[in-house]
Simulated scan of single mutants.
Amino acid sequence: MKNYLCKWIPPRADFLATLSADEQKWMGQYGDYLNELLAQGVIVAHGPVINDGEGYGVSLYQIADDEDIADYTSQDPIVKNGVGHYEHYDMPHLSARK
């Protein structure tokens, strides 16, 4: 198994305060997508991080050795709609409570 911390970076610093109607819809789809991966056991945890009014998303993935993390993050509805991007960080070890 491979482990990753994935950081979703919004397209602008004030993104959360200035969401368009389309972006609000896509953010809902983003949450649904991550929750589905959580239910499947692909994601261990996910959630928003807020820092001085700005934010980004964090997800912890645990995937098979023959899988590519970009295959998951590129299918995220918010990214597919051109809103923000992901950074991927390899985690050599991930311990999680059950």
Rank of each mutant, 00 (worst) to 15 (best):
M1R: 07
K2P: 03
N3C: 04
Y4H: 04
K7H: 11
K7N: 10
I9G: 06
I9N: 11
P10K: 06
P11A: 01
P11F: 05
R12M: 10
D14A: 15
F15M: 09
F15S: 07
L16N: 15
T18F: 04
T18H: 13
L19C: 08
S20I: 09
S20N: 08
S20T: 15
A21Y: 04
A21H: 05
E23S: 06
Q24W: 12
Q24N: 11
K25W: 07
W26Y: 15
W26H: 11
G28P: 03
Q29P: 02
Y30V: 13
G31A: 14
D32V: 08
D32T: 13
L34S: 09
L34N: 12
E36C: 03
L37R: 11
L38E: 04
A39L: 12
Q40C: 03
G41M: 09
G41S: 07
V42I: 14
I43P: 01
I43L: 15
V44Y: 02
H46I: 06
P48D: 07
I50T: 10
N51D: 13
N51T: 11
D52Y: 02
G53Q: 13
G55W: 10
Y56F: 14
S59N: 09
Y61C: 02
I63K: 08
D65M: 11
D66T: 15
E67Q: 08
E67A: 06
E67F: 02
D68M: 06
I69L: 02
I69F: 01
I69T: 05
D71T: 13
T73P: 00
T73M: 01
S74F: 01
D76L: 09
D76I: 14
I78E: 07
I78G: 00
I78N: 00
V79F: 00
V79K: 00
K80E: 14
K80P: 02
G82V: 12
V83H: 02
V83Y: 08
G84S: 02
Y86F: 15
Y89E: 06
Y89M: 12
D90T: 10
M91T: 00
M91G: 00
M91R: 10
P92T: 00
P92N: 07
P92W: 13
L94N: 06
A96Q: 03
